[in-house]
Design a protein around this nucleic acid. Structure first.
Lengths: 205, 205
DNA sequence: GATTTCTTTGAGTCGAGATTCAAACAATAG
DNA sequence: CTATTGTTTGAATCTCGACTCAAAGAAATC
């Protein structure tokens, strides 16, 4: 009396749909998201999209979750790939991984696009909160290690400074992806690094 | 053979429509904007909305323009109402007028909502750029006056510091209106003021 | 009051896109 | 091979909201 049926490799399909949806959102924005676009990008029919995600919101939430995780992983990686014995280099790595490098950086573009839902959707708000908290934690660690080894002389608590750095990234990043003509990526990076120099006492960041 | 016809008080009607649209956008967001909602809020028929704004985008652009102007005017007013002989008080006034005071502050909510279009619409990008530049100018003036009178000892150029302050406001504000559970308005204000204290050398802000 | 032009209405039309669904197809168990 | 359940399709249908338009209303001019 064994169970029957075709094997479920839903995991793979779902993953493909999440990826396709992420691509579609990055291209046309949340408002321009169409089931047909997702289906085309994933190479399946419209019906299949609904079969796996009867609620499109669930799919968008998965896209958001995936974007947050992969973005955090990339920053963590950047941080860890810098020499552990050089706190300034590690901080520099963080600073350089937190801003969109072009006005149409796809990763940041997707994240800002998804964050837009946060004001009206608790699920998205939670993801945004989580991203912020974990970025703050990364910076806090980097600053505390530098302070402990004497490499930095912090102008305030590591935790508060970390908050400022992440908020600065978000503010500058928002203007960059929004095509603020007066704030090019280079200029934003300079300003961010200058701020980091000021609060750590390192003039060589 | 004089011209005839009913007088045109299009100005008033347009203003009413802009106001109604602003209200609708603040309530349901750009994605949820419906002609019917605008018409209802303005107390006219759907046809009238199209009569004055055949291109809905033009109406949204007007809403954005109005929001930017009134927001800037309110900050300018806050700045000027503080005693001119007290640079610290003036800076404090600016700092307190730049963050949403609640998680659903309607003014900031509307502005962030409209800024969302900037990435895909040059008109909106221009408005956002203009808002940023003028906020930076306000802060720059406040900082320079304080520095000139010896009230502040600036940690960097007034212009650079002003950029940081505005970007910080934008970053914190974004998280507040997005319901970041870990960053309440009070906390954000504390962090912003702490930053201002650090870069001006005033411990009494 | 007649005329002209501006304004307003709302029912009707139209279209884009979401949703449904019955039939076809696939893999596994027995 | 057959039965059973999982999967996929895409044409038909449904829904919502933008857009059209002919007719009615209103102010200014003559």
């Amino acid at each position: 009396m064994g169970k029957a049926g075709r094997p479920r490799n839903q995991t793979a399909r779902r993953q493909a749909l999440v990826s396709a949806a992420g691509q579609a959102i990055a291209e046309r924005g949340l408002e321009g998201l169409r089931i047909k676009d997702i289906a085309d990008a994933a190479g399946v029919s419209q019906g299949s999209v609904l079969y796996y995600y009867p609620e499109l919101d669930d799919l968008v939430l998965e896209v958001h979750r995936g974007a947050v995780e992969s973005y955090l992983a990339s920053r963590q990686r950047a941080y860890e790939e810098a020499p552990a014995e050089d706190p300034a280099a590690r901080l520099r790595a963080l600073l350089h991984s937190g801003l969109p490098s072009m006005t149409d950086d796809p990763v940041h573009g997707l994240l800002y696009e998804l964050h837009r839902r946060a004001g009206r959707s608790p699920g998205h708000a939670e993801l945004m909160t989580s991203l912020f908290a974990r970025e703050v934690a990364l910076y806090t660690t980097a600053l505390e290690v530098g302070a402990a080894t004497g490499a930095f002389s912090l102008a305030a608590s590591a935790h508060d400074l970390a908050h400022s750095l992440v908020a600065l990234e978000d503010g500058y990043g928002l203007h960059i992806v929004s095509h603020n003509a007066a704030l090019r990526p280079d200029r934003a990076r300079e300003l961010l690094v200058a701020h980091a120099r000021a609060v750590t006492g390192r003039t060589d960041l």
